[in-house]
Design a protein around this nucleic acid. Structure first.
Lengths: 357, 357
DNA sequence: CTGAAAGCGCTTACAG
DNA sequence: CTGAAAGCGCTTACAG
């Protein structure tokens, strides 16, 4: 039976097989009959250690299963070898959102190679993020952070600037002080999408918007308004959405239940479009026969809906990879940079067609 | 212009506004004219500090913006205040998978309250996970880990046991040595799903399996075989899938292109089912008119497909929350526990109906 | 109630 | 080429 002992913080800790014997640099040094500084130099490939000693020490370290403690190393190096993603959303939204999985996947491919880890925390709201950001920075838990879900007047920029915390903003619209930014242009794809609808002959094009406050919500709404104005078409009704399928379904109720429904609907993202189509079908409308519907994002499932969605293909994975590269460079002492990945492109599939009349 | 200086590891580091002046416990002690041990005791609410001193020190710490460095604290406390998720999949699979977002969301809701962080790393393959696990454990980067995607003969159990690393296995099937486990029963829902198809009158029920090697792939295939056998129905054709929509589409090609297509298809998960339906439609088959199709998982979009999917509703979020609770208890010195969350339930929607003849 | 010391596991100048 | 010492920022016994 395992016995109980009391750990350094007074918590009961159960010893495990082979676990009590944490091997430290001191153990390796003792075993090798050298000083710890020699072990350190040998293992880190620093000059000034004879090949014979290096081989001997390496062998002993391996035999003892010694791996340098990141805690001791962090303390002197003043690095955490971790970067953070402090998400400004409740868990429920994160779980449904198609952006984060791709973004994190991209981030990881780069961090992994650099032997950096990603620290993830869900702060749930804008207020709690602002509360936690200084703690993260001052406690030196991470060497830098990603700023996603940038809002129009985002106070985080001022905070990371003041704290001196390396940060990369993703799709923040403008260049911001103190931080690097990576951006994927959505406007060209959005314009192409609207021209596609106009070219098909639509003149009554509605918009289901994203959650208010987000940079990309405003961007999509503006593009819709501007592009239609340029074509001399009166912008159809605007319905407030929230980037969810439920929001899309509600918008369908409202738009298709009206006296003069639109012939095309620009949805703020794919989830919204899928919800819209689902409800439209339930109401007896066919897509694209009665109404053309477009998405935005190009999530994997958008190619497998009925009908497959006309949308704009974004690249959260590539955005994540580039953001990670920028952050690592900033941490290494580089100046802030501002880069772009290739613009999001129109993907014409089967959810759009000529208007019936 | 910022000047350059060289950091402790020889990397160039750019000082930032306000960033050079890292305030440590020593600064607070000096400012307050007390010993660092007094500052530590005061800030951690330990007994033996007069109220007056505590108030004074707290005030000074706040004014100086001091937050204890997790590095210094980690070293003496021998805790990382972080747990890890070392994912055994390439980024592309992770990005498409509906499980992880929900699971991570659930984990976070619990960790956040306990002031623990989640360290995420994508190792990409089983081999690299096994290579990295000892490094994570020995470098003391995390206090414990989650074991997801458990495979039939998973070597990770032996490794975490040997390393003494607290671990929680998710849906691992059996109880395993050394680790806590959390499980959501899928079998009752799976059986109900199959009985639903049998009750509708289907006698030719095919299965599109998941990726080979995973516990839940085998579980679904076994249930399909067993339940049909119990009902005296010969199990229809089995097609290998991979939990993706592409795999589902390929399976539709194969099954619906055959001379005697099945009247119902049990897909290993929702993504597979959605891909199957998409291709079925393209081939001129209606769902559920010509063929009934079922999913598994109950992802949010499964309610918005055309037709909405009959599936089994799983709860990755709850699984994540419970797994996090178990892991924190294990880290605090508790014995391994084995818990269950409520079983996954059948969700009958519109993708299933009586067979045509 | 407060302070001085030791030590967690490392790395980095600096002596020999 | 190797070793002894100092120090990163904390916490925890132990003295006073």
């Amino acid at each position: 039976m395992p016995t109980r002992m009391t750990g350094p913080r007074g918590q009961a800790r159960r010893p495990r097989p082979d676990a009590g014997v944490r091997v430290s640099i001191t153990d390796v040094a003792r075993e090798a009959g050298v000083a710890i500084s020699t072990v350190s130099a040998a293992l880190n490939g620093r000059a000034g250690v004879s090949e014979a000693t290096r081989v001997r020490i390496t062998g002993i370290a391996e035999r003892l299963g010694w791996v340098p403690s990141i805690r001791g190393r962090s303390l002197v190096a003043r690095q955490a070898w971790a970067v953070g993603l402090l998400v400004q959303r409740p868990a429920s939204v994160l779980e449904a959102d198609p952006f984060f999985a791709g973004f994190i996947g991209g981030v990881e491919t780069v961090l992994d190679e650099a032997h950096y880890a990603l620290l993830l925390q869900l702060a749930g709201s804008r207020e709690r993020v602002l509360q936690r950001l200084p703690l993260w920075a001052r406690s030196e838990t991470v060497d830098g952070i990603f700023l996603t879900d940038v809002q129009a007047d985002d106070p985080r920029f001022e905070v990371v600037g003041r704290l001196g915390l390396p940060a990369v903003a993703i799709n923040s619209g403008d260049k911001r002080p103190f931080v690097s930014t990576v951006h994927q242009q959505h406007l060209p794809g959005l314009r192409a999408l609207l021209r596609h609808l106009l070219d098909l002959g639509h003149t009554r094009i509605a918009h289901v918007s994203g959650s208010p406050g987000f940079v990309h919500s405003g961007e999509r709404e503006d593009a819709w308004r501007t592009e239609l104005a340029d074509a001399g078409v009166v912008a159809g009704p605007l319905v407030g959405g929230d980037f969810t399928s439920e929001g899309g379904a509600r918008a369908a109720d409202e738009l298709l239940g009206s006296a003069d429904p639109p012939t095309a609907v620009l949805c703020a993202n794919d989830l919204t479009a899928i919800g819209f189509i689902s409800r439209a079908n339930a109401m007896g409308f066919t897509v694209p026969g009665d109404v053309s519907v477009t998405g935005f994002d190009g999530i994997q499932l958008s190619g497998f809906t009925a009908p497959p969605l006309t949308t704009v293909q974004t690249a959260p994975h590539d955005l994540g990879a580039e953001a990670a590269r920028l952050l690592l460079r900033l941490i290494a002492g580089g100046e802030p940079e501002h880069t772009e990945i290739p613009a999001a492109e129109l993907l014409v599939r089967a959810s759009t067609a000529r208007p019936r009349r």
